[in-house]
Design a protein around this nucleic acid. Structure first.
Lengths: 213, 213
DNA sequence: CTCCTCAATGAACGCATGTTCGTGGCGACA
DNA sequence: TGTCGCCACGAACATGCGTTCATTGAGGAG
């Protein structure tokens, strides 16, 4: 999975496939790759593609022209799984798992290229339930893209996991020293105060996708 | 440009190309189309593709396998042009044009499939300058996707064009009868009140894309 | 009726393209 | 030194796949 362990040539190939696809919206042929990467033979390309395939960097449709697709973290590039719903208002219990990452995806979403740059392989999406974050332009049905992080800043919108309550909620994060304030973005709702020990920040919202059509 | 004027067969072809691409992330071959649409000969497919190409529904790379791309409104599918910057706080003058739609795109952005559904052909994107909409999770550098609309509801976030001032700004829209209140989403800033005659709503924000990476 | 355009048909042509195979250099290791 | 895995090479093969052409039939205009 790691980008290490790849030869310079393989990295070059991977990059070229990506750029080619970005520009023409269909994948390159083996001979396209051969030329662009100054490779002497198509068989060398095939050889390296097999390696990239085994290592999970690409997916290939055999016997199919241009049957190459770049994967990132084993997923189709530019797509994140939608893992479920999250209530922005009242904390809601999570079925069984300790973390969202174990969830089955209920959907898949294409995320903007060029805005988020390379979408992290560990990012996932949650569909927001309820209107309690309405003041933050997060409405019912909106999608937040979450990325697991180690540290959060005050004001960050986070997916908060309350350990004893076994509930998750979407709130703004404010560290007030003794306690942590989880602030909804709705003037009619009150913040929740929790003990730092009881809180686990599952991730930070890195993108909000709102559809109004 | 209109979807009318296309034969049933052509619509079917267009739809198939789209679905195929969505699923496999590369375009179909002419023979793929032939089979899927129960067409007797590849030449018939080619015949219809030429029509679709002339009418602007697709783009073709000749002599290239799978060199077909579905366009919507003459643009690459799922992409919107980024037309420029918009100041969320103080209204800022627009160089020359009456409307954003005349602007040259400074960039191009891929927008999420499945969330916005079919992205309207007339949608465009603006990069937000300033932090005055910070409370609405619209930060400096964020991107708003705007769609021209006829009517707006109170509370909608709109691109407001002030005719006499020749300035545009990003605000929330509130119709108060005699006047219209343009409300920034920043507690330290005051609303602007304008005469309905002086205001032209260029479009409504249908999506907010925020990158925090 | 004839002429013409639109839409479709089947076959053939020829280059494009994925695949396979035999070969060879090179460093690691015993 | 010999063997082995890794990586690269070049050629050949078999389809894949876009293109073209000669025909045909169904309307519409004259």
């Amino acid at each position: 999975m790691a980008k290490k362990g790849l030869s310079a040539r393989q990295k070059r190939i991977l990059e070229f496939i990506q750029d080619f696809y970005e520009e023409r919206s269909y994948p390159p042929t083996i001979r396209d790759i051969q030329q662009a990467c100054s490779i002497s033979s198509t068989s060398v390309v095939d050889y390296n593609l097999r390696i990239l395939e085994r290592s999970g960097h690409i997916r290939r449709d055999r016997e199919v022209s241009r049957g190459i697709e770049v994967l990132v973290g084993g997923r189709r590039r530019g797509r994140v799984p939608v893992l479920g719903y999250i209530a922005a208002g009242e904390p809601s219990p999570v079925p069984t798992q300790e973390s969202w990452s174990d969830f089955e995806a209920i959907d898949e979403l294409e995320v903007p290229q060029g805005l988020l740059g390379e979408v992290p392989a560990d990012a996932y999406a949650l569909r927001v339930k309820g209107t309690s974050m309405i003041d933050a332009l997060v409405d019912d049905g909106d999608v937040v893209i979450v990325r697991p992080v180690d540290s959060v800043k005050n004001g960050d919108m986070v997916v908060a996991w309350l350990q004893t309550e076994k509930e998750v909620t979407l709130k703004r994060f404010y560290n007030e020293g003794e306690r942590i304030r989880l602030q909804p973005a709705n003037s009619t709702m009150s913040p929740i105060y929790v003990d730092p020990e009881n809180l686990e920040v599952q991730g930070k919202v890195v993108a909000v996708l709102r559809s109004n059509l």
